[in-house]
Write a protein that binds this DNA or RNA. Structure first.
Length: 326
DNA sequence: TAGAACATGGCTAGCTGCAG
DNA sequence: CTGCAGCTAGCCATGTTCTA
């Protein structure tokens, strides 16, 4: 599927001045020029300004920074790393170094510090290895940060549906316009609407308890959200959440477990009534549900009574109708 | 391995609510 | 009233995973 190349301008001249191709590791970070954050002009400008690819960005001047001088992004987009991925990333960076630089911006509030745009996991791994992290420094406004962050995730396509939903909801909470969020997540308004409605309907503590659940697709998350609109479903889900074995399960299994718990319990089937002859012989089992009556006759035990009964049904029905009309 | 089932993303149409 | 934004349902195409 073609993805809109909205990142393309990150390295372009339309951005605020302050970051040349020269390394800036030892310089005080340039403060980004003020850029309108919201409103039609700001929205269009932010997306329009973001117009070259991540690959081009990676080709920009890379500097080495102390991981301790870099803070997390002002908005998180990930629930938890899949099992083992962090350890393997640390091992890979120990053996082969950091192949792909992270993107940071000068911290908007603290002089001399930086803020991650994307590359949180590489930053964490570098910090663990007590090595400088290779980074591209760009002065970006908040809108450019979320678009870059979202699109970097889209490029790797490793955010699950619910992580994207939470990311979208957080962006909306922070006041970003739909245009920006759609650009950040590369979705149309329909998709964005679906993402946000799921994130709003499912309590965040439940989502965090489940984790990213990458195998649970959009439709099942949407269905889960719909099920939780029944208060008793939420009670059942929370009860299951408290069970000791919940945390021992993987994220996808946790989702399925709670998804099932949220389903309306099937109505208990009434026990079938055993019909007996005067001498105690069991003739049939009679059960009724949802406007349907089922009669099961044990043909062997009743010497073919079932077959006889089936042949007699028209007569019985006629008698029933006569009684009805009387 | 082929077909079925599922997941995903995109599109259209129709509806509602709101501001001008 | 009109236009716009947002939401939902339904449909379709495509890619991926499962199963016989």
């Amino acid at each position: 599927m073609a993805r809109k190349n909205l990142l393309s301008g990150l390295t372009g001249g339309e951005l605020p001045a302050g970051n040349s191709t020269a390394p800036v590791a030892n310089e005080a970070p340039a403060r980004p020029a003020p850029v309108p954050h919201f409103g039609i002009g700001g929205t269009r400008g932010a997306i329009g300004a973001v117009s070259r690819s991540i690959e081009q960005l990676k080709a920009q001047a890379v500097v080495e920074l102390d991981p301790r001088s870099i803070d997390a992004s002002f908005i998180s987009d990930r629930l938890e790393a899949p099992d083992g991925t962090h350890e393997s990333l640390v091992a890979s960076m120990r053996d082969h170094g950091q192949q792909v630089p992270i993107l940071v911006r000068p911290h908007p509030e603290t002089e001399g510090r930086y803020q991650v745009v994307y590359g949180h996991r590489r930053l964490r791994a570098a910090a663990e290895l007590e090595r400088p992290v290779r980074a591209v420094v760009k002065p970006l406004n908040d809108e450019q940060v979320v678009v870059a962050q979202g699109q970097e995730n889209s490029e790797r396509t490793d955010l699950s549906f619910i992580e994207r939903a939470l990311f979208a909801a957080r962006l909306e909470e922070k006041g970003f316009g739909r245009e920006i969020i759609m650009a950040a997540l590369s979705v149309d308004k329909t998709g964005l609407s679906r993402l946000i409605s799921v994130a709003v309907k499912i309590p965040e503590d439940l989502i965090r308890a489940i984790g990213p659940a990458p195998k649970a697709g959009r439709d099942r998350w949407v269905e889960f959200a719909a099920r939780l609109e029944v208060p008793s479903a939420l009670d059942r889900v929370r009860a299951r959440l408290r069970e000791a074995s919940f945390s021992e399960r993987g994220t996808d299994e946790r989702f399925v477990w709670l998804f099932d718990a949220a389903a309306a319990p099937k109505p208990k089937r009434a026990r079938p009534v055993v019909l007996k002859a005067a001498d105690g012989t069991k003739l049939a089992k009679l059960s009724s549900e949802a406007g349907r009556t089922t009669l099961i006759v044990d043909d062997e035990g009743t010497a073919g009574f079932g077959t006889y009964l089936a042949a007699t049904i028209p007569e019985l029905y006629a008698a029933f109708k006569r009684r009805d009309e009387a």
